[in-house]
Design a binder for these strands. Structure first.
Lengths: 150, 150
DNA sequence: ATATTTACTTGCAAATTGCAAGTATTGCCG
DNA sequence: CGGCAATACTTGCAATTTGCAAGTAAATAT
């Protein structure tokens, strides 16, 4: 029963990473994996600042600043100065950016549905419940271990 | 019940990625995330060739060739020509490399145990079972969806 | 015996990264 | 109010990482 915990997570995480990579072209835009993550996160958060998204993704702020610039240049993201605090830029997806993000999301979900299609309803529910459990507990465990999570 | 499947996986995968990143210095060697993945995979496979590991990790072979060179240079990996087919180089961890890989692995598992420590035995078993299910089904689903997994 | 394939390596040139140092705006404290 | 620190973001490098093209060397096919 006490197997190597890391191994099963490592394999799963790698495969999920491949999936993310493969779905990058889904929007017809050939964006990079990093850009895909950024689109995803801007879509998910409610009018986030540059700082917020950079931190969420664990990216250096200067690197992130440039990534955003490139996404603005290709017309997928727009930067709006915060009306209250003008040091801050609010990020949002353009119509085109939203479309790309949605296409990627659909393709991801489609693949995942496909993975689940070989499972019973019970198994599927179990898996979803398990991931929720993991997420909840990983969040709680931020300061538990010697190495803090970023 | 029908929530966004991708989301929960995306969050989990990202967090697990952070964990991997944070454990890179565990061996006292300050290696990069990519190097950590390579050490892990060399350790896991049984005397793999350069080609094999590159493919497993989804890395371009030329990039991978250079990554291996750097790991050889810092003394964590050794390249041995295959006695039967001399085009092939067999990869293995040096004693030091094995130690680094083990340290990282221990730290990863330690953190994961910590995450599980807030769960009941039943919950833990459920999660482990769920990840196994996922891995099994993701493997089966290679050619299922329109976008093939790498 | 020659051609093709396979495994791996190098030459670039482009893209990505992060630290240091910058600007601009806001908040703080006397 | 005025000056000083803090915050949000941007640019200047310089180093690293990346991948395609083109190479070498060994094995396999014809």
């Amino acid at each position: 029963m006490e197997q190597n915990l890391r191994e099963i997570f490592q394999i799963f995480s790698r495969r999920f990473g491949f999936l993310n990579k493969n779905c990058c072209q889904a929007g017809g835009h050939e964006i990079s994996l990093v850009q895909s993550h950024i689109l995803y996160e801007i879509d998910r958060q409610h009018h986030p600042s540059i700082q917020q998204v950079a931190e969420t993704l664990g990216t250096d702020i200067t690197t992130f600043s440039r990534q955003v610039q490139s996404l603005v240049k290709i017309g997928l993201v727009s930067k709006t100065p915060d009306p209250i605090d003008r040091r801050i830029f609010i990020l949002s997806l353009t119509a085109e950016g939203k479309e790309v993000a949605d296409n990627i999301d659909n393709q991801m979900n489609q693949f995942l549905e496909c993975v689940f299609s070989n499972m019973s309803q019970d198994e599927k529910a179990t898996v979803i419940h398990a991931i929720h459990l993991l997420n909840k507990n990983m969040e709680k465990t931020n300061k538990c271990c010697t190495t803090p999570l970023g």
